[in-house]
């Protein structure tokens, strides 16, 4: 009972308070400058009626999917390899540490120059945003595999393929999953940024386009949609992560 209260009622109260506060703040300014919750709801309805909403959401999700899966399928193999090869890791680590602090947004000017306006710059930016968290998480996960697993598989005479597929990948999986989780969040953030600068469709473009027409209600509608979709994506991957952790018997600390 108390659990349910804390899970549903408290957040509902918090959200209601936020909306009230928003309404109050908005009432002190003109709706062109600071739209109220109902204005934003109207703007979303307008987007639905125009058929624009689904188009922008689906193009954004498509870009995210392409860039994220490409980044993940590059970062995991490289991470597995570097995690197992100490000299390789030593040589490449300074390079990674040099590239990693460069915000993906800093790549924009080049991305637009190289790839023009369209899908590619946004995809390129998301790729960079998602690549490093997955790479670093994979390396750490592989390096943290307990030595006793290797001893056991050695002892039973496991072949390298058996060790790789049967031990290294599953043993590193929970750690990799954490990286996937973090990367999805960063990818989503940078997707919006990417579409604001280098695209002519998608949720990021929706926001920047609305600014050009001084449609603050549409700006806020776009922001709200980005938030809601981000929340849903996070829920999805958290569920996946929890499933893995249950299988592996890792209990999350409260």
């Amino acid at each position: 009972m108390r659990d349910k209260l804390q899970k549903f009622l408290y957040p509902a109260v918090a959200i209601s308070l936020f909306i009230l506060l928003w309404q109050y703040a908005a009432s002190r300014y003109s709706s062109e400058l600071f739209p109220a919750p109902l204005n934003v709801l109207d703007a979303i309805r307008e987007l639905v009626e125009q058929g624009r909403l689904w188009k922008d959401i689906s193009i954004s999700l498509l870009r995210l999917t392409i860039a994220y899966t490409t980044a993940v399928s590059c970062a995991i193999p490289v991470g597995l390899f570097l995690g197992r090869c100490q000299p390789c890791l030593r040589s490449i680590d300074p390079l990674v540490q040099l590239l990693r602090p460069i915000s993906p947004i800093a790549w924009f000017p080049l991305a637009v120059l190289w790839f023009g306006i369209g899908n590619t710059p946004a995809i390129f930016i998301i790729f960079i945003a998602a690549f490093f968290p997955v790479l670093l998480a994979t390396i750490t996960a592989v390096r943290n595999i307990p030595a006793v697993y290797y001893k056991v598989s050695n002892n039973f005479g496991a072949k390298p393929v058996q060790v790789f597929l049967g031990i290294i990948i599953p043993a590193a999986f929970p750690g990799i999953m954490t990286g996937l989780h973090i990367a999805l969040g960063t990818a989503w953030i940078h997707l919006v940024a990417g579409e604001m600068l280098g695209a002519d469709s998608g949720l990021g473009y929706l926001i920047i386009d609305a600014r050009n027409f001084l449609r603050t209600d549409l700006i806020m509608a776009g922001m709200l949609l980005v938030g809601v979709l981000g929340l849903l994506l996070n829920r999805l991957i958290t569920a996946g992560e929890q499933f893995i952790n249950r299988q592996w018997g890792i209990t999350r600390q409260q």
Binding site: V148, Y149, V152, W248
Partner: peptide
């Protein structure tokens, strides 16, 4: 070899 911490694969 049998280890003190079992060496079982948790997954």
């Amino acid at each position: 070899m049998i280890f003190q911490d079992y060496g079982l694969f948790p997954w």
